[in-house]
Design a protein around this nucleic acid. Structure first.
Length: 332
DNA sequence: GACCCGTGGGT
DNA sequence: TACCCAAGGGT
């Protein structure tokens, strides 16, 4: 262990945290200091806006797919004001295939709110952040902690899983976040502001790269000897997660429709979206345009146009699409 | 609390 | 192949 990156005992405080907790604090923050991935939003020069954008993009989306989009996004819209100056449809268009395009809509709305209510600067407190569209309990705490160095109880899926294993001896956390988990996370949070930020980042990182859901790399774990789950013989989870259905669902159709709208230069006639051929021949991806690629995604759906009608109606209701004289397009 | 919301890579 | 999973949020 690199003692140069080790945190002095004094920084851990002498409060009620017991010896084991302090040991885990030190092990994980030391491990993080040397093993952390160099992600651009972790750069000390990264703006709070850059961090907020990263947190929204990372909601339910792996880092590797966020990286290129985050770079493009920040170059195009380096400030909340820059994004707010554009129509919401531009945000959805440049969201690309990141998934959950409503996040782009909400990020645009958040940028607008930041301009209107915060003079264009990302607010610094958890409460203010929580009021922004698309910012929930996790994201508000994460931005307050990582952008503004505040002591916040950050609880994401990684932290939940690590703590379930390390302290509860369970393979997986409960299906939904519980009050008990929140209390445990609060109790584990180091008193010191700066250390608490590192702690949050470290636990999250451990869950992301080592203490993973599927095949945890316990060999590489810096707190292996303190892990209750390992001590218990790594018992399996006492429930089976419900899979996310997709094939044949409205979500699939919505995704295909938005994919068409995203690449369309002009409004798309309604009938093109509703009566998309379900038996469109499969072609070489390099030989077909984005429009056809999206339509191809509809292949295999037994869904009649009724489902397309429903999906489109949902998109219009959600503000992801608008109807004009010429047809359907992204919101203006 | 249950359910819905996209997309693609790993196993 | 089919299923699991990913720095969640909103209703």
């Amino acid at each position: 262990m690199n003692t140069e990156t080790s945190v002095p005992d004094s920084e851990y405080g002498t409060g009620d945290a017991d010896r084991r907790t302090r040991l885990v604090h030190r092990r994980l923050t030391d491990w993080f200091a040397e093993a952390a991935r160099e992600l651009p939003w972790r750069d000390p020069e990264c703006s709070p806006w850059g961090i907020l954008v990263s947190e929204v993009m990372l909601q339910q989306t792996p880092v590797v797919r966020v990286l290129p989009l985050w770079q493009d996004w920040l170059e195009r819209w380096p400030t909340p004001a820059a994004l707010a100056a554009e129509p919401a449809g531009a945000a959805v268009r440049h969201w690309g295939r990141l998934g959950y395009p409503r996040r782009a809509l909400r990020l645009h709305a958040a940028a607008t709110a930041i301009v209107l209510h915060h003079h264009g600067s990302v607010p610094t407190t958890r409460e203010e952040l929580l009021a922004l569209p698309g910012v929930g309990a996790y994201t508000a705490a994460a931005v307050a902690a990582f952008a503004f160095h505040r002591r916040e109880t950050v609880v994401d899926t990684n932290i939940r899983r690590v703590q379930a294993r390390l302290f509860a001896g369970a393979a997986l956390p409960a299906p939904a976040l519980t009050a008990a988990e929140m209390r445990r996370a609060e109790a584990l949070l180091p008193d010191d502001d700066a250390l608490s930020v590192r702690w949050n980042a470290a636990v999250m990182e451990l869950g992301a790269v080592t203490c993973t859901a599927r095949a945890p790399a316990c060999r590489d774990c810096p707190v292996l000897d303190a892990c209750a789950w390992v001590s218990a013989g790594r018992p399996t989870a006492d429930y089976t997660p419900r899979g996310q259905s997709w094939a044949g669902t409205d979500r699939q159709v919505r995704g295909a429709i938005v994919a068409v709208l995203r690449t369309a230069e002009t409004p798309v006639p309604r009938h093109v979206l509703i009566e998309a051929p379900v038996d469109l021949a499969m072609g070489e991806p390099a030989e077909i345009g984005p429009l056809h690629a999206a339509l191809r995604a509809l292949h295999g759906l037994r869904a009649p146009s009724e489902q397309h009608e429903r999906a489109l109606a949902g998109l219009l209701t959600d503000g992801l699409a608008q109807e004009t004289d010429g047809g359907i397009r992204l919101p203006g």
